[in-house]
Write a protein that binds this DNA or RNA. Structure first.
Lengths: 247, 247
DNA sequence: CGGTAGGTTGAAGTGCCTCAATATGAGTGG
DNA sequence: CCACTCATATTGAGGCACTTCAACCTACCG
């Protein structure tokens, strides 16, 4: 299950450098981190809420969700992690998993031992700042997510999820024209938008009927972005942060 | 509006030291930070979502909320900040306000210029880690909040809010017996639980009728904590983190 | 071809919303 | 000390978005 594959670390470096400027020396320090990769099958949850954490998880391929569940077993997806995301970033500073992690599709993960990560963070303060900044960016997405499930209609929530994922896939360059691949079933979409699978299906079909988008075989085709953005009340600012405090 | 009052910095130091061990030298560095304090009247919002940020805001007295609003004007409270909290912690690394800030009661705030804060963070890496850790703890609360408004009934949501605030006030030692002061109107409670003021009132009265708690004159009296915790499906673990990674 | 996961449809029930009115209580000025 | 005002709290009645439960359909796979 574990293989040595340090080459993939540059994928996370790219992500980090997107938001925080790093010197050549700092980049080398990150690439020199120990790491290993592993594969998880679709549907398997590999971290449970409250677990002790001793390594950071970076998504290399596939789609991962952070989730929580209530006592009665209903599951809510709190965040989606795509290629390049450190899925448990909010957890690593607490040494305890804040939420569970589940593979929504088949995924490959990259694992970085926490002691090594913290050692680098202390040796290179600006790397610590970069990780902290990435965590803050995640928190901003998190907050938009909470706002989404709180005050909006099912249609608006679903539209918002498509907008967010479309925008994030665009940033990573994996959007194909007006569409993108979203490796989720309708049931998972329902867990992410906090509505019933049945009602999600109806809502999705209503977006289809209005000619706004279509989703077949886990491929989202958006025909009318302006209409989708309007339905979602989507403001992409929370996703795009300039390089901040680059002193 | 601005006064020099460095003495109050120790309040934030206390908070920080609660989660992260700090040496005497690091403590001195924090206490030496420049700062100023100001008062805000109840109901005034003093930071808008998207604003540029050049200082950090610590709550000294009163209650502050992070909020977002949708295009149609409905407001959602995303987080509550009590004495000792850095209200815009998720924002400072992005140099842009992730949410608005509003004074729910009369409040006094402490302001710390960001350049000074970052200078100290770079000079003392463990201070950066401490701030990062506090941000992560906030993110955990944030996630529980999102889970709360997503999948639960109005009664459960409201109960959860009382549980969280009760537990947080207990940590700061400002809980009086079975009750605590919660400086919010029913309308604000409605914004925090993402339900209608009318329905919030009915939900609150139902908790009253069941003998679980009472709230009068902004004073919450809990008669039956076990029942409240059960109604909320409350798991306090997300609020209490051990001192982590104290290498 | 049977089994299974994901998707679609129908019909009835309900938790919460909406709008609208009234009550309460604290603060203010006469 | 009362009259007035305003924010806050409470109550009523009707409507709808979403849920619930149940069936059926489709596609993929061994």
């Amino acid at each position: 299950m574990l293989t040595n594959d340090t080459r993939t670390l540059d994928r996370y470096l790219t992500r980090l450098a997107l938001r925080s400027p790093l010197t050549q020396e700092e980049r080398q320090a990150i690439l020199a981190l120990p790491s290993s990769s592993s594969k998880k099958a679709a549907g398997s949850s590999f971290v449970a809420s409250g677990d002790e954490i001793d390594h950071a998880c970076v998504v290399l391929t596939g789609l991962v969700s952070s989730f929580k569940q209530t006592r009665d077993g209903t599951r809510q997806i709190m965040a989606l992690h795509i290629c390049g995301d450190m899925a448990d970033l909010p957890s690593i500073m607490l040494a305890e998993a804040v939420s569970g992690l589940e593979a929504l599709s088949d995924v490959t993960m990259l694992h970085i031992p926490l002691p090594a990560l913290f050692a680098v963070s202390e040796a290179y303060p600006r790397i610590a700042l970069a990780l902290w900044r990435d965590g803050a960016a995640d928190a901003a997405i998190q907050m938009a997510w909470a706002n989404n499930v709180g005050r909006k209609s099912a249609r608006s929530r679903l539209a918002h999820l498509f907008c967010e994922m479309g925008a994030r896939y665009e940033q990573t360059g994996s959007r194909v024209g007006l569409g993108f691949e979203l490796l989720m079933t309708q049931e998972q979409l329902a867990d992410a938008t906090a509505i019933t699978p049945v009602h999600l299906n109806r809502t999705l079909m209503s977006l289809r009927a209005d000619g706004i988008l279509d989703m077949r075989n886990k491929l989202v085709q958006v025909f009318d972005w302006p209409a989708l953005i309007k339905a979602a009340d989507f403001d992409p600012r929370y996703l795009s942060f300039r390089l901040a405090n680059a002193h």
